[in-house]
Amino acid sequence: MNTTLKFILYKLTLLLVISPYGLKYTYCGQPEIFSETMIVATQGAELKTGSGVLRQLNPGEVLVATQRNQEWLWIPLQGGWIKAAELKSAEDLISVLDQFIETEPTAERYHLRGIAQQVLKNYPAALSDFAASLELKPENAPIYVNRGNIRRLQREYDLALADLNHAIQLSTKDANAYYIRGLIRLEQKQLDSAVDDLTKAIQQEPHMVAALNARGITHRELNQFDQALQDFNQAIKANNFVSEVFSNRAAIWEQQSEFESAIKDYQRALELNPASAVAHNDIAWLYATCSDTKFQNPVLAVKHARKACELPRFDDWNLLDTLATAYQADQHLDKASHTLTQAIEKAPAEQKKVLKKKLDKIVNK
């Protein structure tokens, strides 16, 4: 299956879908983590690059760290470094907040614990904490945004939209509310409405990479490739350290047969985030299947496809399909057949038939 133009949203959800603003909770610590989802737990934490401070972070913001350099952690989706002492794992934060809430429950503490539960995908617990926070502070727009996002993730779109609409009534300049509502419109294939909401988010925060990236995806879905490129270019201009944007722009280049530009962007995406299964998978597909033989490289296709599969421990049927295709391009038909059989076992019902036809062609060669 060609995954080249598969623009994913799950990475985007880690950028700005959780609204921490208004929290005053402070707790310092020294978590030992690597390649892990973490939560900002101190007031005044800063995201930095070699040229200075990118921005100040708020308690409750969710980040994914993938590399460590002494006391600093690299946050690829934000394109900067943060001190490890400024972050806590969701589990550690919940443990601390359980004690604090028992002695002195506040809206901010319930809100922060709800964010931690949301990170762990303990959605009922998160919803309970957000409800408790709203009882103490009913007109808190960020909590409605967070609750709306959980309901989006659970495909409860009507409830999600009600929360987001209320958040916007409370705060017409809440970029996150427009952003998440835009994601819902995108998921519902209401593409023009998605562009409208994402544009409103960008108007509030012109450098909001997540919204620019999502609008680029939406324009791509509308077959408006020039507009998609403009969005990805604008996102890169705002922050040229975000791996996912380079992956998405590479896919546009690839569709337009600009293969050299596509490869450069995929390589840049992997420089920024070597743990990106998506970038490894997509460059592997290009090397294995490129219509211009000058850019085919079966050996590199296998290398990148194997790395993509290793990251989720060979548990993703789509990545396994790419690895099988790479093996086939490299003339390792036995390995291709074995890997494709694994993909079929893990694939959803609607994909099994397609993969079985592909396997039959390999076996009957």
Rank of each mutant, 00 (worst) to 15 (best):
L159T: 06
A132R: 12
L164M: 06
Y123S: 04
G148M: 02
S133F: 05
I168R: 09
L153W: 13
P124L: 05
Q154G: 02
K137T: 07
A162E: 11
T172E: 15
L164F: 04
P138H: 03
L161E: 10
A162L: 08
D163E: 06
L170N: 09
N165H: 08
A160W: 11
S171C: 11
L164V: 03
L170W: 03
E135N: 14
I143A: 01
S133V: 00
Q169W: 07
H166M: 05
A167N: 10
Y123Q: 05
D129Q: 04
F130W: 02
L136R: 12
N165C: 03
L136N: 01
A126G: 05
A126Y: 03
T172N: 15
N165F: 00
S133C: 10
N146M: 05
P124W: 08
A160E: 06
K121I: 03
A162T: 08
D129N: 09
K173M: 09
L161M: 14
P138Y: 01
N165Q: 07
D129W: 05
V145E: 06
R155Q: 14
Y144I: 00
P138I: 02
R152Y: 12
H166F: 14
I143Y: 08
K121G: 00
L161I: 14
R155Y: 13
A126N: 02
R152W: 04
S133A: 15
L170Q: 08
A167L: 04
K121E: 14
R155V: 04
K121C: 06
L164G: 03
L134T: 04
R147F: 06
E139G: 01
D163P: 03
P138S: 07
P124V: 07
Y123C: 01
N122E: 12
K173V: 10
A162P: 02
R152D: 06
R152N: 08
A125L: 12
F130Y: 15
R147C: 01
T172M: 12
I150E: 00
